[in-house]
Amino acid sequence: MSTEYNESWTMFRGNIKRTGSIKTKPLIKPLLYWTIELGPIVSSPVFEGGFLYVATLTGRIFCLDIPKRVIKWHHNIGSPIVSSPLILDDMLICATFDSWINNDNSENNSIFSLNKNDGSIIWKHQTTSDIFSSPCPIGKNIVLGSMDHSLYFLDQKGEIIWKYETGGQIWSSPSCHDNIIYFGSDDGFIYSVRSDGSLRWKTKLNGKVHSSSPCLSEDLIFIGTHEGGIYCLNSIDATIKWNKTVLKPVLSSPLLARDRIIFGTSDCRLYCFNLAGTKIWEFETAGKIWSSPSVSEYDRVLFFGSLDSFIYGINFYTGKQQWKFPTMGSIDSSPCLSDGMLFVGCRDGILYCFEKYREPAYIR
């Protein structure tokens, strides 16, 4: 494999718009490159400069040297991590969800920053509630939601600049565009907040936004609800352009690429729509889809995981299965794509790394 790394996937869904798409080399039919047992993984990995950063339910954060296939460093924070890390300059920003394992105990939760080069702690901010939401950068600042019903805006030293309170827990990860923040809450509203913490607008949907994160185009927002709602809204005035309803919750975050929007749902299906809301195809698995799909802008195959324990590669245009890989546990971690590689975490405790398929020498 190539040892030149010019691309990156530095946050949940790959970018601040949470589109799940990246300009990287196509995989089409991935070949297993490496597996390593780290502990159960719900959080989604991030990648930069040949190093992959992975957080686990055991409270450990790992930095993996991908070309050497070794652990460079690891840090034990002591509380489960389900939020996906953020790479911001030389920092790795993470947050904990202590009651994931320790019932209702949230005394040990924190938002913290590690030095991405050696894993040493830079700062740590204690919180009063669990955090599922993944951090998003706004310049050098950080925004993320919390189970205490508030959206937090922090500076790069971890100091709280402001917080915006909603009427419900915030599982949804915020997205950003032009210094405007978008996020959903369990109170059933999707919010648009300015970078100074003032409300721009909020709109009621058909139920709580439990973990689906807003996916942004230039002027549209796509998001799912716990009551099975699939929505397209105007980002300027929050008018609903179209909406669909499926039978089970939409907890996965949508994928936006090539004028198509793709949702994974708890009815075990992946749905593809055009931007006008016309359904193009659907694909069914044997388990709920909580993992959010990802795709290279140069590839015809998108990737996602399912609670049926398989990683899938689906034709972006037709919805037909192109590739399937078995694991030993449920997958709700979302795939990370970069430099022609695919990285997926799993509850079986294994991190799966794939590279582009190469014909064996005896075939060539």
Rank of each mutant, 00 (worst) to 15 (best):
L251M: 12
Q156W: 10
W123V: 08
D219N: 15
F132L: 14
D155H: 07
H226C: 10
D187E: 11
S173L: 02
V143W: 01
W242I: 10
G228T: 06
I111K: 05
H210V: 14
H149L: 05
F189A: 12
S235R: 09
P137I: 09
Q169H: 11
P214K: 07
Y182E: 01
Y152V: 00
M147A: 11
Y182H: 01
D118R: 09
G168H: 13
K241M: 03
P254D: 08
S134W: 01
T128Q: 13
G158H: 11
N234Y: 03
L216E: 08
F222S: 06
P254A: 08
L151T: 04
P214L: 03
G197H: 05
R194L: 14
G158A: 13
G145I: 08
L114H: 00
E165S: 10
L220C: 11
S110V: 09
S134D: 03
I142Q: 06
G158Q: 11
S253W: 08
G188M: 11
I160N: 02
S120H: 11
I121L: 15
T128V: 15
D196I: 06
G184N: 06
M147P: 00
D130A: 11
I121K: 15
T225P: 07
K124N: 15
S217N: 12
G119E: 07
C176A: 13
I131V: 15
C215S: 14
R200M: 10
S235T: 03
I160Y: 00
D219T: 14
F183A: 06
I230F: 02
E165F: 02
W171E: 07
D130Q: 03
G207V: 05
R200F: 07
Y152D: 04
I240C: 09
F112Y: 15
H149F: 14
I122M: 15
Y231S: 01
K202M: 13
S146K: 01
N117C: 07
G158I: 13
L144M: 14
P214R: 02
V193C: 14
C232L: 06
W123S: 06
I221M: 12
L114Y: 04
I223T: 10
S172M: 05
G224P: 08
H125M: 11
I180P: 00
I190P: 08
S150N: 09
E218M: 03
C176R: 01
P174A: 09
V209Y: 04
I121F: 04
G184K: 11
S211R: 10
C232M: 04
F153I: 08
I138D: 06
I236W: 00
K116W: 02
I131P: 08
E159S: 12
S146I: 02
G158D: 13
F112W: 10
V246T: 11
S150K: 15
S172T: 03
I111P: 02
P137R: 15
N108S: 14
K208P: 08
L144Q: 05
G145F: 06
S129I: 02
R194I: 01
S252Y: 04
V250D: 05
D219F: 10
N179T: 06
L220E: 12
E227K: 15
